[in-house]
Design a protein around this nucleic acid. Sequence first.
RNA 1: CGGGGCGUAGCUCAGCCUGGUAGAGCGCACGGUUCGGGACCGUGAGGCCGGAGGUUCAAGUCCUCUCGCCCCGACCA
Length: 568
Amino acid sequence: MRWSRYYLFTTREVPADAEIVSHRLMIRAGMIRKEAAGIYSYLPFGWRSLQKLSAIVRREMDAAGAVELFMPVVHDAELWKESKRWQEYGKELLRIQDRHERDFCLGPTHEEVVTDIVRRDVRSYRQLPKNLYQIQVKFRDEIRPRFGLMRGREFIMKDAYSFDADQAGLDAAYDAMAQAYERIFEACQLDFSRVEADTGAIGGSSSHEFMVLADTGESEVVSCRECGYGANVERAETQPPAPPEVQKPAEMQEVATPACHTVAEVAELLGIGRERVVKTLLYDTPEGPAAALIRGDREVNPTKLANALDVPEVTLADETLVRKLSGAAVGFAGPIGLPDSVRLIADESVRGLTNFACGANKTDAHLTGVNLGRDVDLSEFHDFLLVTAGDACPRCGSELSLSRGIEVGHIFKLGTKYSERMGCTFADEQGQDQPMIMGCYGLGIGRTVAAAIEQNHDDNGIIWPLPLAPFSVLVLPLTNRDDAVVAAAEGLYEDLLAKGVDVLLDDRDERPGVKFNDADLVGIPVRVVVGSKSLADGKVELSLRRDGEKELVPVEGAVERLIELAAV
RNA sequence: CGGGGCGUAGCUCAGCCUGGUAGAGCGCACGGUUCGGGACCGUGAGGCCGGAGGUUCAAGUCCUCUCGCCCCGACCA
């Protein structure tokens, strides 16, 4: 491609709203253009990169036995009513009507459509398993789109759906997808990690996320260097912290703790460690109020708490509700004397505590010398501890560390949630109808490209991993006024094209400085500079964007050397 | 949805407080000088000051409404 005829316009300045480096660089390198909040055009240079990734994804999906199809963007509401998600999905589902005022929505994900397809075709266990995938536009009306392609409303995703006759089949399909994902992200040369994840609204029994590690990531990841355990912090477990020394039961007493609203203040006033205070957090849930008890030096993980309570979500009670339930100001709630309507649940960290302090459900008062069993009867213990760095790995006990990641893939074992609701069944060996067992496997195409830039850039611009680079080689003649330079550059360009190399020739009539800066910005991995001086010696200058080290080679052998450098 | 901010040239922004002829830099066009890391000089084109209403002799500027965008928070396959 000749730059002069291509559609690639770089900019020096960026809109002030571009916050993170991948967003800035994608705009400056002419890859994307914002059309509305969270909605982008993919300009030719950016689209090439998405196409490179898509090709890798297709290759690995096909190799893993998935079959490509293409489903609609606009979905009939009837399907979504069948799966009950017309009501459940909430405002992220963009609903529209046609001229006859029939309800439709823009597909945020395709379980409904794919299940509808499969239930019409597949009748027998003999026809299973099946795995269908597409690379398609999704629309989710996110509350707050941000960071360019990281969190858009309209975005491109690869989504695959597996259908199996039994759990073993699902397990195999899931493993095959997980391995395909590993190969895809390895092929993209990304530093990533596969972690356990919460299943969230999608439901199902098991789920993993693929995280590209980057400080700008929106997700927090817990990992163990020793045994390889990894999990989204929402899901992460740890071994319960060791309880403090067991003491002889003391008498329970009410003590005045004026204006002590936090555990730290209470602990200091009482002259005890925070681990001897029990924090009582009141939550509102769709099933009624709940009181969550946790050791004073630790924090609650709301996702784990919701799972432990078996409710879709929990919301920390506001001041009014706290007063109503505990009869006291915020900061003085305790497990003793709460109304019966409040469900009591304790984190494992509370087990084994002796002579602890807790709120007295009375403003400016706490109880001390409280003991389980004698003073308060707790029957429900669960793990809803928020893991922090340094906690013990649940598998091997080593120290866990915390890092940030960009969620580029998410795979789920769905089970029969959709097949049951939508009647997607098959006849088993006994001729009995059974719901198919499903899995779904998402991979953000645009987000992965953005993540690659987050991980591969410097102050001057993008440093493309070769497999995702829009072009592999940039031919950069320093001037258009020296016929020898032009001829040599044209020659290299034509030869590389003939060899099937993705090559861009910067034939613009620009000064060298402009060309060099643009070359760094757009980040093409292999560069060959053709200048009058070196050409007088019959040489051209090769370099890699990644390290910038220059190598002078004779013009004659340059093409072979370039092909070598551009080999993925 | 709560809190905060911003809409002026293609882009980045000043001008608004204190109403009185629409500005700068970059980019673009033309001419000249330059030419291995975003050159310089000159000339020029380019604006419904997001939209609607109001106050006023007069509104980019003040008031009301509205639309859009961004940030923080809650939320999230």
